[in-house]
Design a protein around this nucleic acid. Structure first.
Lengths: 223, 223
DNA sequence: CACACATTGTGAAAAAAAGCACATTCAATC
DNA sequence: GATTGAATGTGCTTTTTTTCACAATGTGTG
């Protein structure tokens, strides 16, 4: 199966499929490191907590990667998934809002390892501007965002401002020419429909847990 | 509609509904602050980027909160959603792995505001043990987790270790008596089926964006 | 107190996603 | 080179989730 085939994607791919592909790649990295040459859909499914048919169907949207009677070659499959998810490229990120979360993200090794490189960090607070971060970046004033984004070819903008500052941060990013935004604040931001927006509200899952804790069993909250 | 009714939950509630309830509460807080007495499902839907019928149906799983011809009283609706999600209680959290992300989470104001309070922080690295954090907590050795968890009635355990340390962290938490785990690492951890586990892989959304960037438009990645 | 108007709550339809089950195809073995 | 065994790829079924559309029910007004 050719790369061009990977890239064409004729039928519509379900959104959950994309998210799972990324999940599949995690244990595949482990298997590669451990030296397993092949993996079956069943084993991979167990490792990811999903259904084996799901694994096969997800992959089938992009081509035929398996060998019947054997399974998938770990190395090849990982390469294919990386090509699909474009993790085999390098992506340039910039970030707005250098609070605790922002600082944690720019230092994050997982991002770096997958090719997501922070090339600029901004903050609206002038007291933070000029500060040198451990990753080597210096906090820039938001006034300079347009120049820096176009000069460094930023692909994705990350928002880690306060909730109130999120919309303004998004506006600044879009105005500066960034076409994709990842919003870590709980605020619902609106951007031009020609751009991509993903929200990552790190508090949502906590609320999920709390909901289930109060129901299913007679768990008691701390008084 | 009575609270008991809120709490009974006769039919099965779809999982996406729970997640959306938390999303609804965000703009409701803003509306309350702004002094809007009522909100229609249509307006709330726009603010959250969903379908109006979705909003009404989600709420309908738990009772009748609206006034026909008028909409929902903001204050009452927020109170109801908080009761459903159990955000009107106080939840005790502990955290394992005090790297950059862990440190960011314990200081996070949004968590605190919603009643999620970190009462203990652990790290396997003895060089970090004893360190005093800005939030007032002191990093504890993992050896003491069992005592502390039972003494402080920890409801939820948060994992922010390295990928490799995640499973061990989960085991420690479960062994210490924690029944709910929120895993921030990309590792797939396995726990007893009588416990709750939520995964929050903060890199997944990034991979989603990259995927769409390479497809829909002819976007170019940085070389 | 009737009437106009707005918006809810909900059954039924549509769409999307997940899972089953099996024919197909490949590797391995004798 | 036929045969066995294993695991893929996929059409079809089932389940879940979303959306539609409208009857029901409330508010506000004259």
């Amino acid at each position: 199966m050719a790369v061009s085939e990977i890239m064409s994607e004729s039928p519509k791919v379900p959104k959950p499929t994309i998210e799972r592909l990324a999940i599949y790649s995690r244990p595949l990295e482990d298997l590669l490191e451990a030296g397993s040459p092949v993996v079956s859909s069943e084993r991979l499914a167990i490792l990811c907590g999903v259904n084996p048919a799901q694994v096969r169907k997800d992959l089938a949207y992009f081509g035929e990667f398996g060998i019947r009677g054997l399974g998938y070659e770990v190395k090849e499959l990982l390469k294919a998934i990386r090509a699909i998810l474009a993790t085999d490229r390098r992506w340039s990120l910039c970030i707005l809002g250098m609070g605790n979360l922002g600082r944690a993200l720019v230092e994050n090794e997982n991002f770096k390892r997958r090719g997501y490189i922070f090339v600029a960090a901004f903050d609206a607070d002038n007291r933070k501007v000029g500060e040198r971060l451990a990753c080597g970046l210096t906090i820039e004033p938001v006034a300079g965002i347009k120049d820096i984004v176009s000069k460094l070819h930023v692909d994705i903008g990350v928002i880690t401002t306060s909730q109130k500052g999120a919309q303004r941060a998004a506006d600044l990013l879009i105005d500066a020419g960034v076409r994709s935004v990842l919003n870590f604040t709980p605020a619902q931001v609106r951007i031009s429909s020609s751009c991509f927006l993903e929200n990552e509200d790190i508090g949502l899952k906590l609320e999920n847990l709390a909901y289930h804790l109060t129901r299913i069993r007679g768990a008691r909250a701390t008084k």
